[in-house]
Design a protein around this nucleic acid. Structure first.
Length: 317
DNA sequence: AAAATTTGACCCCT
DNA sequence: AGGGGTCAAATTTT
């Protein structure tokens, strides 16, 4: 039994490592192919960064694997618990800074969608992200099964975002969707601008991409497109508890305290401070503009101006 | 052929 | 023990 469990974990580790290294290799290839070309400095830097990231993550896993036994003192008799992998993954999730995030500490929030008669359910439930269903389960006391979905790009990009969809007992037209984790995939930066009315995520973890954009635009002096305002809006206009969208109602219900995940890099901290302190002033800007762009699900609105990172439960070192 | 879904087995927690 | 979440093989869809 012990052997089994350990074996399994080991297999997962190997798999994880394999993915990381493969990813790194792919980035290296890309970089190589760009060397001769006129590609931007930025894009090359980005690739280099990705490569280093892969190395770092891999090394961290390998280093950890040697001490699994000590690391999990209360593993239940058997080898490293499955959560270990998660912890490790999260631990290394931002280069340089150690952050351990357990599954539980991932941001989590709920959205309710009421389907109007005649509306195609799939369409109504679409939030702009692409999801892959990985399970369905009958839940005690629920008439309808619960669907489990994860981000389509989990494998390709390691995006950990997840959602559960539960059709309501009493009101079969109502769906409760629980989101967990923030999209770190490439979708994260696109969804929202492409999809008019839907979910915008002020991801903290989508970090790299967004921050890079912001940073880049600041560096260049081109304040072309105001990502910050965008984020602000999302942060500061939490949401009406009920929103009327064309034919269906979407309401965001509750965001949990679990705002654990912050892929905090050195400059992301600065950035969020900036965001947090800046908001007071710009908050009132054109609410009137496109009603079509509404920050919907933001687990983050509750980091008040005072303590952007106040109650994070997810930080360890 | 590849991507997505279905579904029973399996794992972890209470 | 049993409930909820996830895995992964089989199956379906694209």
């Amino acid at each position: 039994m012990e052997r089994n469990s350990n074996g399994r974990e080991w297999e997962k580790m190997k798999k994880e490592l394999n993915e990381l290294m493969t990813e790194g290799r792919d980035y290296a290839h890309q970089l190589k192919s760009q060397l001769g070309s006129t590609s931007s400095q930025e894009s090359r830097e980005h690739l280099a960064k990705k490569i280093l990231e892969s190395y770092h993550k891999s090394l961290t896993i390998m280093n950890y694997s040697g001490e699994l036994d000590q690391v999990s003192p209360h593993s239940h008799g058997t080898g490293a618990p499955r959560a270990m992998i998660l912890i490790i993954k999260n631990h290394i999730s931002s280069k340089g800074i150690s952050i351990c995030i357990s599954k539980k500490s991932m941001p989590r929030w709920t959205r309710k969608v009421r389907i109007a008669p005649g509306v195609v359910i799939d369409r109504a439930l679409d939030d702009g992200f692409s999801w892959r269903k990985y399970g369905q389960k009958d839940i005690l006391g629920a008439k309808f099964p619960r669907g489990y979905h994860r981000c389509t790009y989990r494998k390709a990009q390691g995006c950990e975002a997840t959602k559960q969809v539960q059709r309501s007992n009493e009101d079969p037209m109502l769906f409760e969707i629980i989101y967990r984790g923030i999209h770190s995939c490439s979708q994260a930066s696109n969804v929202g601008s492409i999809i008019p009315v839907q979910v915008l995520e002020p991801n903290q973890t989508q970090e790299q991409e967004n921050l890079e954009i912001v940073k880049a635009s600041l560096d260049t002096g081109h304040h072309n497109y105001n990502h910050q305002a965008h984020l602000h809006q999302t942060l500061n206009y939490p949401l009406p508890s009920t929103l009327n969208l064309e034919s269906n109602n979407v309401m965001l219900q509750e965001k949990d305290h679990n705002i654990g995940f912050l892929g905090s890099t050195s400059y992301s901290d600065a950035n969020y401070n900036f965001l947090a302190s800046h908001d007071a002033g710009s908050a009132s800007h054109s609410t009137s503009n496109s009603p079509s762009t509404v920050g919907l699900e933001s687990p983050f609105e509750n980091f008040g101006p005072s303590h952007p990172f106040g109650g994070f439960g997810g930080f360890y070192s």
